[in-house]
Design a protein around this nucleic acid. Structure first.
Length: 276
DNA sequence: AAAACCGCCTGTCGGC
DNA sequence: TGCCGACAGGCGGTTT
């Protein structure tokens, strides 16, 4: 699923091909992708505008446009944003929106499960986008420190897995990278926040940054649906240590990997390396 | 206040 | 082989 590394990869791939291109047409094929705006108004406000920049916050992509507008996209589970240089190429079955650039191709928002969203707002006005308004720190930024990890775990009875998935604390971790980070840090997903020692938080801090960095280098993890902005698969699925590997051997100690529901999510771990 | 649960969707998979 | 329920998981909203 698209988590921080996947969304960052989409951002990097799309930015150079959409920059300064004027939107000549907007086709909405699935209305409910639009939040707080009708297809008619969405189309009317966007047509003719150019893209000025493309940034990311957590798992949100923010397209900066002329007239101080921002188009905010969230891919949820199966969303894809793909630039197609030839508009004549047939669209995919589950295409929700197409931004046309005339002879310069188009940008297609595809989404099998239809959970993805699009918002159009004035610069920085995110009140209507609840998740974005309450988003926590960027895990690859300087503000993300061991001290910060301590602040969000101390006195907390919730599991560390649940805390890592809470977007209002850390922005961008999902099920895959939470599990991979905990494995690397040798911490069991069910450990409670208040049970974690300083040295474990240091390991976790380092693990999160390492895993995210390597996943971005690998252009993300394609298990099924995720694609880059050019429609290509990522490669980090080949580097996963535990996610989706129940029954396989732990790459560190050789014991059979296990999985169980933690904080409502299937969580993969090594019962030996990650003690309860 | 925090945590648990449900709904939103479609495709895939395992069991019978 | 085909049917059917379980499952995948991010987030908003509601309930506990």
């Amino acid at each position: 699923m698209p988590e921080l590394p996947e969304v960052e990869t989409v951002r990097r791939s799309l930015l150079p091909v959409i920059l300064h291109k004027p939107i000549e047409s907007v086709e909405v094929h699935y209305e409910r992708i639009l939040q707080h705006i009708t297809p008619q108004e969405f189309q009317a406000r966007l047509t003719g505008l150019r893209f000025l920049d493309l940034t990311r916050r957590g798992k949100y992509l923010i397209f900066h446009l002329e007239r101080e507008l921002e188009l905010v996209a969230h891919l949820r589970m199966t969303g894809r944003l793909i630039y197609c240089s030839d508009s004549a190429i047939a669209q995919a079955k589950h295409t929700s929106v197409i931004f046309g650039f005339g002879s310069a191709g188009d940008l297609r928002f595809e989404d099998v499960r239809k959970f993805a969203t699009l918002d159009l707002v004035k610069i920085g006005e995110y009140e209507q986008i609840k998740g974005l308004a309450k988003l926590g720190v960027e895990p690859l930024a300087e503000e993300f420190t061991v001290q910060f990890l301590q602040e969000i775990t101390v006195n907390r009875s919730a599991t560390i897995k649940g805390i890592l998935l809470d977007q209002s604390k850390i922005a961008g971790l999902g099920n895959i990278y939470a599990d991979e980070s905990l494995f690397l840090a040798k911490i069991h997903p069910e450990r409670t926040g208040n049970s974690l020692q300083k040295k474990e938080l240091k390991r976790l801090h380092q693990a999160i940054q390492k895993v995210l960095g390597l996943a971005i280098e690998g252009q993300g993890t394609t298990l099924r649906d995720y694609r880059t902005g050019f429609g290509q698969e990522g490669s980090f699925q080949n580097e996963l240590q535990v996610y989706g590997k129940k029954g396989e051997k732990c790459p560190r100690c050789g014991v059979d990997l296990e999985h169980k529901k933690v904080a409502g999510r299937t969580s993969h771990y090594c019962p030996t390396c990650q003690r309860e």
